[in-house]
Simulated scan of single mutants.
Amino acid sequence: MFYEPKNGHGLPHNPFNAIVTPRPIGWISTRGKDGKDNLAPYSFFNATAYVPPQVMFASTSAKDDRDFGKDSTSNIRDTGVFCVNIVEYSARDVMNVSSGTLPADEDEFIKAGIEKAQCDLIDCPRVANAPASLECKMTQIIKQEGDNNYIVLGEVIGVHMRDDCIVDGIFDVTTFNPLTRLGYRDYSVVREVFSLARPDD
């Protein structure tokens, strides 16, 4: 099968995000200029550079009560900071609750019963028990083709790691099993890890 996205695919559901998988989930926490906190998962998320460490996530829809994409993008535009929280398998249900469309003044931390903590370097909440949280200073917001498609880029200026996730000097993902996003309503979990030596090692 071949299709051109502009002409449609003829399938019951769009296969695009099922093809580009698995994707890490950035659980983005923000605080608005009005002091209201927000938490939302984004599966168009990744790291982009080592030095300085940088990350990105993309927002692809809008809300009627916002003038700039969703709550996350609006808050980041206004404050210039955000936090990326890593999602573990055991948090899958509360993460899913936080993905719901709520009014801009309703706090997903409270709605989902998620404990929050204050970031150290930025005025922003974080998920208190996340395996890791990345405090970020926004560097760019890029408008993509299409309605309400934005890429948010940020420099990681502070890193929180849960102590039990550090084993023999490494951040060990097998201690918490990262949740990953597939297509449709599907997810997966990292439980098996192996190493490969690079040709230049």
Rank of each mutant, 00 (worst) to 15 (best):
E106S: 05
I114A: 00
V127F: 00
G100L: 10
A91S: 10
A117T: 06
S98R: 02
F109P: 06
A117Q: 09
C119N: 00
E108A: 08
G100R: 11
P125F: 04
I122A: 09
P103F: 02
I122P: 04
I122V: 15
T101W: 12
V127N: 00
A117E: 13
R126T: 12
T101V: 10
G113A: 08
R126F: 15
I122Q: 06
C124R: 11
G100F: 12
A112N: 01
S99R: 11
L102F: 14
K111T: 14
C119H: 01
N96M: 14
K116R: 15
R92P: 05
T101A: 10
A91W: 12
A112P: 03
T101I: 12
G113L: 08
N96P: 04
Q118W: 14
G113F: 05
G100T: 07
K111F: 15
S90I: 04
G113D: 10
D93N: 10
S98Y: 02
A104N: 07
R126D: 07
D120G: 07
N96E: 08
L102Y: 14
Q118I: 08
S90W: 04
A91R: 12
K116M: 10
P103S: 02
E106G: 03
V97Y: 11
V97A: 08
Q118H: 13
D120I: 08
D105L: 10
D93L: 12
